[in-house]
Nucleic acid binder design. Structure first.
Lengths: 229, 229
DNA sequence: ACCTGAACACCGTTCAAGT
DNA sequence: ACCTGAACACCGTTCAAGT
């Protein structure tokens, strides 16, 4: 005979295993993917592991530590390629787009990245790849070093924007929200807001990908300029 | 004779006034300045106004709406100056530094800015000033329009970093944290992390202000390059 | 019309106690 | 040694009821 507990564990989740940080991380990521960061509570993660919230504290100091560990796991899914001087610019775009994609696949994790300055093992692999690629592109040491902070920051911010729309704020899609903001710009009094009114179209043009690519290219051009100085 | 209530209100807070969005915003900002964003709970703000949490919902739909209103109030403290083509670069730096300072004076509010895409009235004034200054500097319309998103984003991210240190994560100061990270970089195996090991010094050099100024200048140079294309 | 008491359905974290 | 029941001190939000 199969008990209720057995039936539940084979249907909803992996069979009950001994607790461990890894088990908590995986349970946390399941909750994150399903219901977003807010749903990642100690109680919910514990329930996912068929135990009580207190048990989680055996392997993890608190909720923030669990979230940080989850973040490093997500960063670990990003694939890096060896730096190639011929394609360095494209490689930077690919790496940053992969970061955004990995974070968008786990809605809310981007907030954890901003609140904590990622220094986990996998973040270091990403930083090493970024640094190698920037240097391959001829960017000088100091600009390259600082860019390792700035560029992932743009990726994180872009991912957070993605979260906003995937959460369907006010039930709007991204397009609807942009259109609404554009209408607001156009209806602004032109005497007090001449520039916003004039550039209403430019302000709302382009999707997230296009704007992100533009920001990256601006930054890279600026880094190259700084490298020549 | 002065009652306990009178004495308390003159010592601790403004005299009890009728409820209003403004009263809630001001109470919220007092809590924010004193104890950070986490402490801004409906219950705490209500207590600050000598009432119960349910009363707040008469003027505000939920906690997020209150936080967004608080953010717009903070943005309103930023002073803008008319665009001057002779000093446009300096003006961009001043405006963005003022944004960071305003947010750092209210620890945690930067998170609200990222989670919500500020579109309040005061945010529009800031955007108009930014746009005017960028155009005065010769930046073309489309780059200027997109820069209105990207540049404040850098400011917000910088403010969040400031929050991390003002919170004294692990009781460390900013300098101690940078030194710890630097030590970690230097001790990395040079065969797997040749670039990080080589640039450990560059990675940790410069304080927040210097890095922020560098990021702004890179971005502006990139925007100028894009404007010429 | 404006406000609120009381309740509902949750939180993170601790710690004494169990196995 | 590893795990957990129960409790502590909180949350946001709703809604019927009061003034």
């Amino acid at each position: 005979v199969s008990t209720d507990a057995q039936r539940r564990s084979t249907r909803d989740r992996p069979a009950k295993r001994p607790l461990s940080v890894d088990a908590e991380i995986e349970a946390g990521l399941r909750v994150l993917k399903a219901d977003g960061l807010e749903a990642v509570t100690m109680r919910r993660v514990a329930a996912e592991l068929d135990t009580g919230p207190a048990s989680l504290y055996v392997y993890v100091a608190n909720r923030n530590e669990l979230c940080t560990a989850m973040l490093d796991r997500v960063i670990g899914t990003i694939e890096v390629e060896p730096a190639d001087p011929e394609r360095w610019r494209e490689q930077v775009h690919r790496l940053l787009n992969a970061m955004v994609a990995a974070m968008n696949a786990h809605p809310g994790i981007a907030h954890v990245a901003l609140a904590n300055i990622p220094t986990g093992g996998n973040a270091l692999v990403g930083a090493e790849a970024m640094l190698a690629t920037l240097r391959a592109g001829g960017i000088a040491d100091q600009p390259a070093a600082w860019a390792c902070d700035i560029l992932p920051l743009l990726a994180t911010a872009t991912a957070i924007e993605g979260d906003i729309y995937s959460a369907r704020v006010n039930g709007e899609t991204e397009e609807e929200a942009i259109e609404r903001v554009g209408a607001a710009f156009r209806s602004l009094p032109a005497d007090r807001f001449p520039n916003l009114a004039a550039l209403a179209g430019a302000m709302t043009s382009g999707d997230g990908d296009e704007r992100f690519a533009f920001a990256i290219d601006c930054m890279l051009d600026g880094l190259l300029a700084a490298s020549r100085r």
